[in-house]
Deep mutational scan, measured.
Amino acid sequence: MASQGTKRSYEQMETDGERQNATEIRASVGKMIGGIGRFYIQMCTELKLSDYEGRLIQNSLTIERMVLSAFDERRNKYLEEHPSAGKDPKKTGGPIYRRVNGKWMRELILYDKEEIRRIWRQANNGDDATAGLTHMMIWHSNLNDATYQRTRALVRTGMDPRMCSLMQGSTLPRRSGAAGAAVKGVGTMVMELVRMIKRGINDRNFWRGENGRKTRIAYERMCNILKGKFQTAAQKAMMDQVRESRNPGNAEFEDLTFLARSALILRGSVAHKSCLPACVYGPAVASGYDFEREGYSLVGIDPFRLLQNSQVYSLIRPNENPAHKSQLVWMACHSAAFEDLRVLSFIKGTKVLPRGKLSTRGVQIASNENMETMESSTLELRSRYWAIRTRSGGNTNQQRASAGQISIQPTFSVQRNLPFDRTTIMAAFNGNTEGRTSDMRTEIIRMMESARPEDVSFQGRGVFELSDEKAASPIVPSFDMSNEGSYFFGDNAEEYDN
């Protein structure tokens, strides 16, 4: 783990906690998980779902989305002020799938948001429990990260689609708070800032007046979040320049895209947490497990152990491969979309394939898809080993990566060399080191050039047997250095459309 220093740990961010010791953190995270579980059980009762239907990941996603929508204050306010045809701002819903006479049927349900809020609060001892809501947002974000390569979004903001390893959390809503900021990748933060800068260039009043003052505060806050992700002084200094700019424009845009590229080699610290679907927490609570009393951590053995003992089902389209669908969801559960496939294969105990080789589309089923041909199958979400999630980018030494994705962002704290394609990355730096950030740029390029592919990161860190909950005997895996390590390699994943 990167030293926490003055930073709060993510469990504290996750639970809005002030400084807590490890036991208190485990208890408050457990409380959050228990609340999600209780809410899910109650919703299944309301909807009269069978046990099997309640364990269907598509039903879980609909129920999670309903509660997130019920608590989305800004959108609710907007919907009330701008009524649109056929949208009731006070209601929320989605597809629920039921097994009827041996076939899967889709039923569109509609609930009062007020009623959903009441059920959620009741499951969370009367609190709004925003930490639990954020947790579900991060699960949705991790699922998107594993399912889609955001080529269009990258290109629109002047970045290269091969930089997708920097895009963790790119679909997280803005209201996801400190826990959300911690899991956002460098590219995601750059993209958010670039969008602001572009608006400022096109709209003279963007930075002016009372609204402009708020915009400015948001801009500086985002700059500080991004600065905190960088691990070298030169990158941090460049972020200070971007933040202090009187009138952010093209120079800042250039600096930010430069920094994003540099992060492929001088990786930023991005938190990883295993956020599971509500249909995993519900049955665990129903079986009598007391998360608050037992304590829970999002970055240790607990999620692995929970998945070892969970039964989750998914709808499967006619030509999809259930094992591939399982891999997709497994990666999402562990926030591992940008991790090295060699490491993932070792931990999972079966070969993890790149996205383009998977015969599976996303987990969600569109409303126009034919239910007649839908089957369902068990998702295999178990693992051979477990490993500690990392909050750091690993040290800054790398190795060759593949054509589709030119770097990785480690999820697990496991000893290995970190793949990246130096030639491709360095070719993108057209040696432009003039301007006010020239000395920093020169320094950053120097550090990137001296990074050695064969150097090892996370020295001495290994994986653990599932029986080793105290992480007492690390097993340090050895990897084939020459092997392909990137998930979005030469990829044809669908595009994420909101």
Rank of each mutant, 00 (worst) to 15 (best):
Y10R: 01
Y10L: 10
Q12W: 01
E14I: 02
E18Q: 14
Q20L: 11
T23N: 12
A27R: 13
K31S: 07
G34E: 11
G34H: 14
G34K: 12
G37T: 06
Y40R: 00
I41R: 07
C44N: 05
C44H: 05
C44K: 05
T45V: 09
E46I: 02
L47K: 01
L49I: 14
L49S: 00
S50A: 14
S60N: 11
V67G: 12
L68Q: 12
S69G: 09
A70K: 06
E73W: 06
R74H: 08
Y78N: 10
E80Y: 06
G86R: 05
T92R: 01
G94I: 04
W104E: 04
E114K: 10
E114H: 10
E115G: 11
R118M: 15
I119N: 11
Q122Y: 02
Q122H: 13
G126T: 14
A131E: 00
G132R: 09
M136S: 07
T147N: 14
M163E: 01
M163D: 00
L166E: 10
L166M: 11
M167C: 06
M167R: 05
Q168H: 12
Q168W: 05
S170C: 11
R174G: 08
G177V: 07
A181N: 14
A182G: 14
V183G: 07
K184P: 02
G185W: 05
V186Y: 04
T188F: 06
M191F: 04
M191V: 09
M191P: 00
V194E: 02
I197F: 12
R199W: 06
I201P: 00
I201F: 11
N202H: 10
D203W: 04
N205F: 05
W207H: 06
R208C: 02
N211S: 12
R216Y: 07
A218R: 01
Y219M: 13
L226E: 07
Q231K: 10
Q231F: 00
A233C: 05
Q235K: 11
Q235S: 00
K236N: 12
M239I: 14
D240E: 12
S245F: 04
N250H: 01
T257H: 08
L266A: 11
S269Q: 15
V270P: 13
H272L: 07
P283T: 13
G288L: 05
F291S: 09
R293W: 13
R293D: 13
E294F: 15
G295S: 08
L298F: 06
G300T: 07
G300F: 03
I301P: 09
P303W: 05
R305E: 01
S314H: 01
P318W: 15
E320S: 09
H324A: 14
S335N: 03
A337C: 04
L341C: 11
L344G: 01
F346D: 12
G349P: 04
T350S: 12
K351V: 10
L353P: 00
P354I: 01
P354N: 07
Q364P: 13
E375T: 13
E375P: 08
S376L: 07
L379A: 01
L381M: 12
R389S: 14
R391A: 10
T396G: 15
T396C: 06
N397R: 15
Q398V: 08
Q399Y: 00
A403W: 00
A403I: 04
I408A: 07
I408K: 05
P410Y: 04
T411R: 07
T411N: 06
F412D: 04
D421R: 13
R422P: 09
I425R: 01
A427Y: 03
R436H: 03
M440F: 09
M447I: 15
E449A: 07
S457A: 15
Q459A: 02
Q459T: 02
L466C: 01
E469A: 12
E469M: 08
E469C: 09
E469L: 02
I475E: 02
V476N: 00
D480Q: 12
M481D: 06
S482K: 08
S482H: 10
N483R: 04
Y487D: 09
F489K: 05
F489L: 10
D491E: 13
N492D: 11
N492A: 06
D497S: 08
